[in-house]
Design a protein around this nucleic acid. Sequence first.
RNA 1: CCGGGAGUGGCGCAGCCUGGUAGCGCACCUGCUUUGGGAGCAGGGGGUCCCCGGUUCGAAUCCGGGCUCCCGGACCA
Length: 495
Amino acid sequence: MASNSHSPRFVRWSGYFAPTLREEPGDAEVVSHRLMLKAGMIRKVAAGIYDLLPLGLRGLRKVEAIVREEMDRAGAHEVLLPMVTPAELWQETGRWDVYGKELLRFQDRHERWFCLGPTHEEVITDLVRREVRSHRQLPITLYQIQTKFRDEVRPRFGLMRGREFMMKDAYSFDRSDPEAEATYGRMREAYDRVFARCGLRFTSVEAATGAIGGSFSHEYMVLAESGEDQTVSCSKCGFAANIEFAATAPIPSGSRSLQAASDAHPGGRTLQGTPDALPGSRTLQGASASSDAGSLSAPRRKIPRLPGEPSPSPIEPPAPCPKCSAPLSLTRGIEVGHVFKLGEKYSKAMKATFLDAEGKERTMVMGCYGIGIGRTFAAAIEQGHDENGPILPPSIAPFHVLLTTVAQDPRALEAAESLAKELNGAGIEVLWDDRDERAGVKFKDGDLTGIPVKIVVGKRFIEKGTIEIKPRRDGAACEVPPSAALAAAHEFLAR
RNA sequence: CCGGGAGUGGCGCAGCCUGGUAGCGCACCUGCUUUGGGAGCAGGGGGUCCCCGGUUCGAAUCCGGGCUCCCGGACCA
């Protein structure tokens, strides 16, 4: 499990800042939004703009840490680019005029135009073109984890679709097309690892790229009923695609186009095709579809049909899989990640070139790769919750163990504290609810944290010297002496 | 941006139609009782009723304009 060395690993609830709500928040429909408000993880500041409170921030930091580790493992290097970016860079690629109102623009005191960065192709390309001259400095992949701003017409669903949001965006620069595709493949493997480590059931699907010709992309979807996107998937061969893409993909000739579309993209192999390297017991369903890091907070893309093509009808399960003819199933998903092969779109416009071994000037081949950090955390709640609150995977829960003392008896408190310290020494992060509250209040609040393992020190400890330990997910408690708690906690966390 | 809904103590809401002392639950403070799934009783504090203007003896309530927020949709290279 990933943990941040800079966040406290043992926190007492008394004195902590986790203002839970007793009543249902009035203006939240979606589960993750409602529960995050109720748990005191977030508070709204304006439409699509939120405060992240300690519990919520810890969750996001966990996701962030996993993303960072996997990016580093894939050979990418972390940078931090400015959030405020000058108009000139955007004018170079024409996006200053094209982007529209989503790009929040403003002037500084000298009346120079700037915007809040919604994505950073221009900024990163500017950096790289100035510093990279030789083929010997390539390939290189840079990434950052940063707050982005997109002035969405209608933000909604809390962290799932905000205007300000935390995003990891990576950009690769390669010397050739094949090299760029290899990088793309490595990024896809990193993405598979990230979402698997986050404990999510997900799928990746192919997408057509619309206006950006010659390129391709994949989007990563967390499977959840509340998802805005629909995908079709085949449980037999692992094929998967965004339903809109599946229904509208161009048909080269006879065969219904899914297969052709899928095969046409080198990055499009399914996870079953890359059985290596993925830890954990995730349920993956395949590979599928969409656009650059820029579209992360903008799911649902309509892919234009070719002229003269018959009007497509959506693929309704149980349609046969275009690859293996097994029945397709329909799932809903939340787009949490996007990888996109950009080609030369930005490098050409901004003259990001290098000299190859023959001394010839060539244009860099780019890719970009986004992950919505907050959205991933919210998606985990969409996927894991019950009527009492979130049920989070250990890897991204704000703490690993919630220790609740129900009796304010000095012996119980003492036992709890030494237990907390023992767990802590073993690398387990503990939130100890030491508040002088009624048991009911503590249990209700405790469930709202989403922490996967619960330990109760109370009446039975006073009577029999035992404590209760149980997983948040299914309430089956076991009663053990405190000396057995560490082993039990490890066991539950490993499930 | 189109359509629908809503702004009233910190939170959730009623009151508005039919103008006349601003209410309820939760939270908060005090006391007593209680103590394993959001306790009970008693007492208490807390309000520019979103804003501006109009009608009226009198506006939370009626009228006009504006702002903000939520939901559905469109949009989201």
